[in-house]
Design a protein around this nucleic acid. Structure first.
Length: 552
RNA sequence: GGCCUCAUGGUCAAGCGGUUCAAGACGUCGCCCUCUCAAGGCGGAAUCACGGGUUCGAUUCCCGUUGAGGCUACCA
């Protein structure tokens, strides 16, 4: 068989060779150890936490080594493409702090930057074909004319006989077809797919070092996989090999679902005579299914909280989400962060080998905890700006009020902020807006009941409080008056006294302030009451007392 | 079915043959602080899936079992 003739017959229009592309896409000149990584999504629209997890790994590996991270669009499957998915992806990742140095920047190839493009795989057809042509010349690839029906018949037979399914060995009907036979099919107008001619031996194992998992051992691939589809675009396997080679990727970070096809990939790299990148197979994110109680992979249908848009909608600070992802991405990040609370996360030494290799459970509790810490370090101004932007983006009814009453909001967000022990009760925008709702008459609702201890004294307490309340009092003067009021009515000045001798008192000062707190906020729990009243102002304080009085 | 990966408390995990029969964080429980809450401080409960080896000695190495996840497309 004259492979050269076959190659020419199949790809007459392809004049460039892989060697030409080596010139066009030269090795990158970067400092020793600088990693080139990439995110390579298919434009299917939905972006979830797992994508961010992977993207952050890519971004961190690149930037902590002084390398770069690019975005390549894997649009070789026209059926799955979703209109406008890419700009959304770029925006969303950008929102969470992932910016690409090279590759896709907008909705199409025109937007791309970098000299290793095109970055849309659908624009790289000639490059793939040149590589396939090369393989054909080497006798390592061949055209296959099997129909879908033929293939599924073979598969059915294999399954019935409990053999491994697929096109390999004797099932690879066109593996050794003569050039005449191929010509006949071609002349009949049939369009072949191109298959790789595998020389793999399933009894032979090869070993490869994964950047995350260490040594991995797998059997050689025997399948004559399709490398070029009828539509003239490559399958993932081939596109990955060609692109990551010519784009000079050093670290291929991808999900562990790719591990089983690694034998195909190394075979293809070998056939092309190329060096392997460092493969880094990370784990999938899991969660506990509420209904079954079982651990399972996050699903986009069942788990809206895995969609990145969910966090944006809830108003989580992007930094909080990022911090959380970092804690599950590199196990010592959390300790590093505790030791370096204010240091930029760029300073953290990220490494692929510190990534987990067993399925990580998503933990909303932990996210919220991390978020509290992040927000505790923000200024009132930052909280305000963020919440306002959030309210405006999602058309929250509060948006107008927030814009009009900036000073008020700043005072509210400033309660116990800064200092050694800042309050940690703000988690995400939606929660924050609800949390401070009692400052606004139109949102004020009574959520908790008055303490039972004061059941018979509610009226007296509130009326007396109205008399003694003076906004000019400082915190301790004010509280001294509360104590006095309680003592006068038979309540202990200190909770401990009441606990020791519950029979001698009706209750204690805490109960008195609880009455006032509920009158003010509608809740039995709140930040410092005196501060709240200072922010509310005398009119509102009196208004709230009257309202409470009217509801007794 | 075949193949691959993984396996330390409820969760994230450190650990990489012997001062660790196990660090830290979240959660949980108790106490302290305290006019409530959020924090903060202190303390408790809770883990090496199971069975064989190798070794003077294994959570750490090997094998098997079990379990979990993944792959098995002209999808990525």
């Amino acid at each position: 068989m004259d492979y050269k003739e076959l190659a020419e017959l199949l790809f007459p229009e392809i004049t460039k060779t892989p060697a030409d592309y080596e010139q066009i896409y030269p090795k990158r000149s970067m400092k020793e150890g600088a990693a080139v990584t990439r995110m390579a999504p298919s434009p299917t629209g939905f972006i979830h936490l797992g994508n961010l997890y992977g993207a952050m790994a890519d971004e961190r590996i690149a930037h902590t080594t002084g390398g770069l991270c690019y975005l390549r669009i894997e649009d070789t499957d026209d059926k799955r493409e979703v209109e406008g998915a890419i700009p959304v992806l770029i925006d969303t990742l950008g929102y969470f702090g992932i910016k690409f140095d090279e590759g896709a920047m907008g909705e199409d190839e025109e937007s791309a930057i970098g000299s290793y493009g095109p970055y849309w795989q659908s624009h790289r057809s000639d490059i793939y074909k040149a590589c396939v042509k090369y393989l054909v010349e080497q006798g390592k690839a061949y055209p296959c004319f099997m129909s879908e029906e033929e293939i599924s018949e073979i598969r059915a037979g294999q399954e019935a006989r409990k053999e491994n399914p697929g096109i390999y060995g004797k099932y690879a009907k066109y593996r050794d077809a003569s050039i005449e036979e191929i010509k006949k099919h071609l002349d009949a107008g049939e369009v072949p797919v191109m298959r790789f001619r595998s020389e793999g031996d399933p009894s032979k194992y090869f070993e490869i070092t994964d950047g995350i998992r260490g040594k991995v051992s797998m059997p050689e691939n025997i399948q004559d996989v399709v490398i070029l589809k009828q539509i003239g675009l490559p399958t993932y396997h081939f596109a990955h090999v060609v692109d990551d080679h010519f784009m000079r990727t050093t670290h291929v970070v991808r999900g562990e679902e790719w591990l089983p096809s690694l034998p195909i990939h190394v075979q293809l790299f070998d056939a092309m005579g190329w060096e392997y990148p460092i493969f880094c197979h990370n784990t999938v994110l899991m969660k506990i299914d509420e209904t079954t109680g079982q651990k399972r992979k996050l699903s986009k249908r069942k788990d809206p909280e895995l969609g990145l848009s969910f966090y944006k909608q809830m108003g989580y600070f992007p930094e909080a989400v990022r911090e959380y992802i970092m804690t599950i991405l590199n196990s010592d990040y959390e300790e590093w962060r505790i030791a370096n609370p204010l240091t930029d996360y760029n300073e953290f030494k990220f490494s692929a080998s510190k990534m987990s290799n067993s399925g990580t459970m998503f933990d909303l509790n932990k996210l919220n905890d991390v978020s509290k810490d992040v927000l505790a370090k923000k200024s009132a101004e930052e909280i305000y700006d963020f919440c306002l932007a959030w309210a405006e983006e999602y058309n929250q009814p509060k948006a107008e009020s927030m814009k009009a009453n900036k000073e008020l909001y700043l005072k509210i967000f400033d309660i116990d902020r800064g200092g050694e022990k800042p309050r940690k009760d703000l988690v995400y925008a939606e929660q924050i807006v609800k949390f401070i709702s009692y400052f606004f008459d139109d949102e004020f609702v009574v959520e908790n009941e008055m303490p039972a201890e004061c059941k018979d004294d509610l009226k007296v307490i509130l009326e007396k409080y109205k008399e003694i309340y003076d906004p000019a009092d400082d915190n301790s003067t004010w509280f001294g008056k509360i104590k006095a009021l309680g003592t006068e009515l038979g309540y202990a000045e200190k909770p401990k006294d009441y606990k020791k001798n519950p029979d001698q008192f009706k209750g204690h000062v805490g109960h008195i302030s609880s009455v006032i707190r509920i009158a003010m906020t509608g809740r039995s729990n709140s930040p410092d009451l005196w501060t709240i009243q200072q922010i509310m102002g005398k009119d509102m304080v009196l208004r709230r007392i009257d309202k409470a009085l009217s509801e007794i």
